[in-house]
Design a protein around this nucleic acid. Structure first.
Lengths: 166, 166
DNA sequence: GACCAATGACTGACTGAGCAACTATAGACG
DNA sequence: CGTCTATAGTTGCTCAGTCAGTCATTGGTC
């Protein structure tokens, strides 16, 4: 144990992932804030905007974000108060509620998105040559598929599939 | 705008990074919890254990973690209460305080670490062939260096360097 | 068609984190 | 030497998020 066990190469390897994540997340958060959004709020808007009719049931929204169902209740509360979202009753199941993006919410998202994509371009995509980038993404996909089972949505965004019944 | 702007390939690329991060972090957190540690507590123990004499000034600890100084105060409070750490006055600067890992803290860390490394091996390192892994790490380093300026500690863990004066 | 477990959303109590204000000490400058 | 600014750490307040518990509704089973 001459050379610290605590400096194991494997640990520094994950450290790298953490630093990349933290670095990107911090820059993104700063830009979101310029548009009056938090990171979760942006994520919620994105998930809803990608969904048919810009709406999703609370539970499905929770499943697609990093939040618990009660967490979603609270974010949607705030965003509804700010006029970005509104709730809509589900006609076929009176227990369920949809979160729907308002006009104002879509506008906010569309105003935020270009800058966001630019940040991704500048700090991530643009840092690597196309071939290296592809290789990186391939490898990340392998790890993601291992570590995040059931999220293998593929490129068609088929995550919804099951529960969009209502 | 037939094919949603919201499904831009660049966005899914960062999504990949986020998912990998989240997936790994969740598994790690579960294992930490088996040993009665939170993620930040583990990180604090690691940072201190890597430092000379297993100690660091509060401010330096804050700089090396994802926490603010007040955040560090509170984590150290908790960990001191749990007997993992203790505070020690700095002889040459009476404003400063060291956080020092106790015997019990080192024991806890050493009991947690093997399982942690095993998780890294199973879910990250072991998912890729050596050459692909090296390529992945190289690419991540490029992005990290761009996005996380000043953290280019190199492989020698020289982050401390400046402020270990006292 | 009456009961009963499962499901969807919401709420109260609690935890953990940050910011801003505060205290004490250090170091610089006249 | 006395003052003035910068630095180290702690604390009060607030906010976001979880967990566990609650209520309403649903769908199955007899």
């Amino acid at each position: 144990m001459t050379k610290n066990l605590y400096d194991d190469a494997r640990i520094t390897a994950v450290g790298l992932v953490m630093e990349v994540y933290a670095g990107l997340a911090a820059r993104f958060a700063a830009q979101f804030e310029e548009h009056g959004l938090s990171t979760v709020e942006f994520e919620v808007l994105m998930r809803l905007a990608r969904s048919p009719e810009h709406q999703l049931r609370m539970t499905d929204l929770a499943a697609q974000t990093s939040l618990s169902t009660s967490g979603v209740t609270r974010v949607v509360d705030r965003m509804e108060r700010d006029g970005l979202l509104c709730r809509r009753a589900c006609p076929s199941d009176r227990r369920s509620a949809y979160a729907v993006v308002t006009e104002s919410g879509m506008a906010r998202l569309e105003e935020t998105l270009p800058g966001h994509i630019q940040l991704i371009q500048d700090w991530f995509i643009g840092q690597l040559e196309p071939a290296r980038l592809e290789s990186l993404l391939d490898s990340l996909r392998v790890v993601r598929d291992a570590v995040h089972p059931g999220a293998t949505a593929g490129s068609t965004g088929a995550t919804a599939g099951a529960s969009t019944a209502c």
